[in-house]
C-alpha cells in the first residue's frame, strides 16, 4: 500500500484530473523560420519541438532512395536537461533509437509518401521537458510540423497513452503515473478512419482488459485530435490575416 495513491476514492488523480481527462494540450505551428515546417507542443509538462525538412533530394547513400515514394527519416532526441535526472547524451541510446523507429513507422503510415518519389522527408523531434507520454507528444507535435510543411497526410496522427489503475483505465499518463507501476499502452490513431498507426505496450496485460484500455486510449486520441485541429485552424487564420487575404 505504500507509495503514492494514483487514484483517490473520490476519483481524482494525483494532479487533480479525473480518469478520462487529458492533460492540457497547447501547441503552436511555425515556430522556426528556417525549417520547412515546425511546431511546438505541450502536453501537460511534456514539451516537444518538432521540425520537418523536405521533401528534398535524398542525402547520403543513393541506396536509400525509394523509387516509388519518399523516404521518411526521423530522429528522436531528448534535451539533456529534459528529465529530472540529467541525461548524459541527447540521443543515440537504445531507447531513443527505438523511438525514432516508431516515429518513422507511424509517419510512413500517415504521410502520402507516394507523392514524392525519390525524395526524403526529415522529421526531427526534440523533447525539451519530459513528464510522461513522450512518444505521444512527439507524434502530435510532428503531425503539426508536417502540416506546417505542407506535406499531405491521410489524416492527423494523434497519439495518447492509457494505463490501468484498480481496474480503471486512466488516459494520458503523466510521469508519476507511468512510473507508478502497471501497464501503459501507447496508441497512434488516424482518427477519421479509426485506423491505428502504432500500438505499443510493454507490460503484461490480460487480454480481457485490452479492450477497455484500447477504448480509453482511442477516446483520448480523439480528444487530442480535436485540439490539434483547432490549432491548425487557428494557425491558418492567423496566416491568412498576415498575408492579407
Amino acid at each position: 500500500m505504500a507509495g503514492i495513491e494514483l487514484l483517490s476514492d473520490q476519483g481524482y488523480r494525483l494532479d487533480g484530473r479525473k480518469a478520462t481527462e487529458l492533460r492540457k494540450v497547447q501547441a503552436r505551428m511555425g515556430v522556426f523560420g528556417q525549417a520547412d515546417g515546425s511546431a511546438y507542443l505541450e502536453q501537460g509538462n511534456t514539451k516537444v519541438l518538432a521540425v520537418v525538412y523536405g521533401p528534398h533530394e535524398v542525402r547520403g547513400a543513393r541506396s536509400k532512395i525509394l523509387y516509388d515514394r519518399a523516404v521518411i527519416n526521423c530522429q528522436y532526441s531528448m534535451a539533456t536537461f529534459s528529465t529530472a535526472e540529467r541525461k548524459r547524451r541527447p540521443h543515440g541510446d537504445r531507447k531513443s533509437s527505438e523511438m525514432s523507429l516508431h516515429l518513422k513507422q507511424t509517419f510512413e503510415a500517415a504521410v502520402l509518401t507516394q507523392l514524392y518519389p525519390r525524395s526524403q522527408i526529415d522529421i526531427y523531434v526534440k523533447i525539451l521537458q519530459a513528464d510522461g507520454g513522450n512518444y505521444s507528444a512527439c507524434v502530435n507535435a510532428a503531425t503539426l510540423a508536417v502540416i506546417d510543411a505542407g506535406i499531405p497526410m491521410r489524416d492527423y496522427v494523434c497519439a495518447c497513452t492509457a494505463g490501468f489503475v484498480d481496474d480503471t483505465p486512466l488516459a494520458d499518463l503523466c510521469h508519476a503515473e507511468e512510473s507508478g507501476g502497471g501497464t501503459s499502452l501507447a496508441v497512434a490513431l488516424l482518427p477519421r478512419g479509426g485506423q491505428i498507426a502504432l500500438l505499443q505496450m510493454d507490460a503484461r496485460l490480460h487480454q480481457d482488459h485490452l479492450d477497455t484500455l484500447m477504448e480509453a486510449a482511442m477516446t483520448a486520441c480523439k480528444g487530442v485530435s480535436k485540439v490539434l485541429d483547432e490549432v491548425v485552424r487557428q494557425h491558418l487564420q492567423e496566416m491568412s490575416i498576415l498575408t492579407g487575404e
Binding site: L14, D15, G16, R17, E21, L22, R23, K24, G44, N45, A84, E85, D131, C174, A176
Partner: peptide, 23 residues
C-alpha cells in the same frame, strides 16, 4: 478541463527537482 495549471515543486533525494502539474 476548466483548470489552471499550477506547478508544485518537490525536491527529493539530493537534487532532483520534480515538477508536477496541479489542476
Amino acid at each position: 478541463l476548466k483548470s489552471k495549471t499550477f506547478v508544485k515543486k518537490t525536491r527529493s533525494g539530493g537534487i532532483l527537482k520534480v515538477v508536477r502539474e496541479h489542476y
